[in-house]
Design a binder for these strands. Structure first.
Length: 268
DNA sequence: TACATATGATCAT
DNA sequence: TGATCCTATGTAA
């Protein structure tokens, strides 16, 4: 099953790739050719570290070069000993026979500090990087003047960075909030609850390598590992099916062009 | 063979 | 709000 590129996927990729490649002098190339120039600039230099912010990755290289990657909808990494990068991989690198291939990213570019700063300042607090965040202030402030639905606000990366379509449905379910309510109508307690749940759930996803939000008790099993794949989520893509908590039919709605699902009873 | 679809985001109107 | 870009996969024709 393909990992979902929301914030947890990005932070996990950063952690695993850092462990595997940081400190290595890498041979970098572009099988597909569209990153040929950037690859040439990085080829033969040492990858020092990797930082993740929201859904963005920043690779730091010796010589102060920074590579910016955003997976978008389709981007994928394939990493492993002796894997063979496909011919349409945008970028590939290797250290001995340890390889990485990146295909389908929305962004794969060398950035200077000014551009990185512009990217960074457009991002709200990241639940996986926000130890010092006071949600009532940081998130509450960003929501307070918005008349858009909270469901749309959670996908806005300037509000909170890292949440995607799966997590927004699940976080709103867990917080018991109707996605159609306006962003500014949330109480400070509700904002804090959403933030705390984001921290907990994205961290869980980062460690597990997939999104699991249900409480095992709600689907009749003792341990998280026993949850069947079809029951890992409360709302996302469950239109018409019964709520794991109350049995009510999960409702589907198109919200600004993006599909959202929620329980009309648990989230009212 | 072609079309629809998906986890994202930007830009033009 | 709609068009557009990125790719792989599954289904329909």
């Amino acid at each position: 099953m393909a990992p979902v590129p929301e914030g947890h996927t990005i932070h996990r990729a950063a952690r695993l790739q850092r462990r595997r490649f940081a400190g290595r002098r890498l041979h970098v190339w572009s099988p597909q050719g569209r990153f040929a120039e950037g690859a040439a600039a990085l080829d033969g230099t040492i990858l020092t570290t990797i930082d993740a912010y929201g859904k963005h990755l920043f690779y730091r290289w010796e010589g102060a070069l920074t590579l910016h990657v955003h997976l978008g909808l389709f981007g994928r990494f394939v990493v492993g000993e002796s894997i063979v990068p496909s011919s349409n991989a945008r970028m590939a690198w290797e250290h001995d026979s340890d390889r990485l291939a990146l295909s389908g990213p929305t962004v794969c570019e060398i950035v200077d500090p000014a551009l990185e700063e512009r990217i960074r300042e457009r991002l709200g607090p990241d639940p996986l990087n926000g130890a010092h965040v006071d949600p009532a202030v940081e998130i509450g402030e960003r929501l307070s003047r918005r008349s858009i639905p909270i469901g749309s606000a959670l996908l806005d990366q300037t509000v909170m960075a890292g949440v995607g379509n799966v997590y927004r449905a699940e976080l709103l379910f867990l917080a018991g909030i109707d996605p159609r309510r306006t962003a500014r109508s949330l109480s400070p307690e509700e904002v804090a609850k959403l933030w705390d749940l984001s921290v907990e759930m994205l961290d869980r996803g980062e460690k597990a390598g997939r999104i699991v939000t249900v409480d095992p008790c709600d689907v009749g099993v003792a341990r998280a590992v026993d949850i069947p794949p079809s029951r890992r989520l409360y709302a996302y893509k469950r239109g018409g099916e019964s709520c794991h908590r109350c049995g009510t039919a999960i409702q589907f709605e198109d919200m600004g062009g993006r599909a959202i699902w929620f329980c009309p009873r648990c989230q009212s």
